[in-house]
Design a protein around this nucleic acid. Sequence first.
DNA 1: CAGTATACGACCGTTTCTGTCCGCGTTTCA
DNA 2: TGAAACGCGGACAGAAACGGTCGTATACTG
Lengths: 152, 152
Amino acid sequence: MLKLTKKADYGLMALKYLAEHPETPALSAKDIADAYGIPAQLLAKILQLLTKSGLLRSHAGMNGGYALSRDAREISAYEVIHAIDGPFFITSCTKGAKSCDLTPSCTIKEPLARVNDTIAGVLRSISIYDLAERETPAGRAVAAQALVTLTL
Amino acid sequence: MLKLTKKADYGLMALKYLAEHPETPALSAKDIADAYGIPAQLLAKILQLLTKSGLLRSHAGMNGGYALSRDAREISAYEVIHAIDGPFFITSCTKGAKSCDLTPSCTIKEPLARVNDTIAGVLRSISIYDLAERETPAGRAVAAQALVTLTL
DNA sequence: CAGTATACGACCGTTTCTGTCCGCGTTTCA
DNA sequence: TGAAACGCGGACAGAAACGGTCGTATACTG
């Protein structure tokens, strides 16, 4: 419940890794998988999803692999999660048009939809660059600050 | 992914329903289940969990049922979700002490933990009362405002 | 051509989720 | 006192999601 899938996790890790190696033209799925000790074939599929969503660019053949298609600052965690796990919904019901069938049941869904938007906003405010930042000096102020207002 | 379970949903709906009927001394699981058209036996178990967590008070026997143990304003959505689905974690790894086994893999977990806290904070700022509020005049200002600061 | 890499679909084992069943204890009321 | 209405709690089964693997086709490099 309210948990990222491992796929999304892996995807974020992979993008982070790519963001940390901007010098190399491309990194293969295996390279990244080895770096983190995650299943290579699974990672490959995740990277393919990210490629289809336009977050990565791929190149086959020797010395091929994947590279970020934009600056790490311009890729949000939300985009990554959305690309991998599909549309983002807190509730099981609120899936597009057809809500909870009949029954005026889900009067609760409306406020929860706002919560959903709030969380999505938080995720949107976080970029891969934010995740990739190495050392975080204790005394340092805020690197990224997301002001979110939840209005019920 | 990042989705509430139906149980949590049902739990929130049930508490909302109870909050909307403060006059009645107690409502049975069946009453609430019928009101929303959800499986009665399943709801019963959910309400039992909420009772064990101290959010509800139960009374057996005829005309028994459940009632809020505190004012609806004093029960947060977070408490409900936590009571039903257990500890709240965005990531699969961050479960207490033992993180992602070996490999310095999850350097990504640290920033995500903050996201986790942020979301938890949002959920904590929402009470059952907020959910239960009926009409929300379009022109009305904010009913509840949660200012959340995400610091990466 | 040989080697390396992505692309993509099929498949499977495990876990989690949802929902049901059943027997038990408790309270109320006739 | 006994039946009915209710909460309590374990066991369990079907369904779906998840995590991961395999095999094969395709694309690029040298």
